[in-house]
Design a protein around this nucleic acid. Sequence first.
RNA 1: CGGGAAGUAGCGCAGGCCGGUAGCGCAUCUGGUUUGGGACCAGGGGGUCGCAGGUUCGAAUCCUGUCUUCCCGACCA
Length: 493
Amino acid sequence: MSNILTSRKQDYSQWYNDLVLKGGLADYSAVRGCMVIKPYGYGLWENMRDVLDRMFKETGHQNAYFPLFVPKSLFEAEEKNAEGFAKECAVVTHYRLKTDPDNKGKLIVDPAAKLDEELVVRPTSEAIIWNTYKNWIQSYRDLPLLINQWANVVRWEMRTRLFLRTAEFLWQEGHTAHATKEEAIAETEQMLDVYARFAEEYMALPVIRGVKTPNERFAGAEDTYCIEALMQDGKALQAGTSHFLGQNFAKAFDVKFASKDNTMEYVWATSWGVSTRLIGALVMAHSDDEGLVMPPRIAPLQVVIVPIFNKDAEARQKIDDKAAQLIKELRAKGIRVKYDNDDSTRPGWKFAEYELKGVPVRIALGARDLENNQVEVARRDTKEKAPVSLDGIIDHVAQLLEEIQSNLFNRALAFREENTRSIDTWDEFVKALDETPGFISAHWDGTPETEEKIKELTKATIRCIPLNNKQEAGKCILTGNPSTQRVLFARAY
RNA sequence: CGGGAAGUAGCGCAGGCCGGUAGCGCAUCUGGUUUGGGACCAGGGGGUCGCAGGUUCGAAUCCUGUCUUCCCGACCA
């Protein structure tokens, strides 16, 4: 194990890679652009998934599963959606291999096994799902249809980065059908709210809720809502999206229902998703030069107990016994705890290792502590250490976990506020992007052309128009044309 | 897909120009001493040098192709 992490200042990208790889979240694989999610990273994803899944169910959704493959003819049915994803689709053209007659021990694609119709590996599942919904929806009584699926999808990206952009990723995608436009919009907003609450309350990640401009909209949507977060290098990251799809998919797949008035109407649709990209957001939002920093509520491991042994076997037994008791009591409180009594590494090594992994609370337990009826408690977020009496230690730890959770959120929020600037001139805008990156709140004349031009000139995009945005008259940062509100710009992942 | 860099033991690297028995540090294994911030001593194991061709008596080294990764662009959650 190499002990050296690249610092954020030195090379932010390398720091991120180091954390993901050395922190044991993921590994590269033999497949281009695809990563292996390791147990620690997958444990984190499981915790995130479990919370989200509960929130989805609490809002009336059910899980289902649809096929990985989408026949090309279905995929192309909704034109804009198909066009938007066409460039990055993996396509299955054959269903069989055979041994190579010219090269023993090797396989070739059997030309005789060509599919009549190619299968697209789903980059998103609207097509296959709406083709199915057609059969499930006849009457207004079948609505609303509220379905979520946990799945993998494939997008053949040109440039990949662990968790942030991989060719295959895990996500959930909700797909709902409604009788009215208003109800569908309410669903879109409700799910955005679920995502925002999840990000803020569980990931300790403050997010801006907003609406995308037409340029940045999901292919096939009428409106795309999003949550946007700010990373420590001042770049924005889209952490989740919720789309109001109008009747686009209903029309493309002919999904109609008989209303109460006995008229045939197209249903109104939404879709919404978050992915393993959230893990990338988590890493970049909270971690430091010592390693990962996990928010307690979703940390795979919340507390680690490190024994400090010495030669005295009797003292050792006492430490083991006390640790066993602490674990029992912490687990009774629902706290995820591990006792690391591996004798092949010394305490200092373990301290560094669990800091790298971002375990929120570390308890060191030695003979000296037991004599004083105390333990040493260290918190990962501030790296503070303090002796704590064994009387009431369980409550102390439980409370400390909550404190760390809110501290991480407050810290990230303060960072975002420090790095959100209101700017009114083009020169300052350009200068800020290079010198003090972050969110920039600025006026925009509302045209796609201007947005495109700004992107060309600065690589900054409009991250969103914040919900409940204050209306104020102003002049567009680029063109000087009149504007009615500020929008949020940033360079983004 | 364009530009740059790289692939040699689990990890990090040297060797390559000038072809001739594959090396170093960490990790690992065994034994011992240790344990309050990445321990120490002694001994051992592990690599067809990314892959495929070619040149050669002989290739990690020279040539061609190919795959993968990283960084910078274009694309994107």
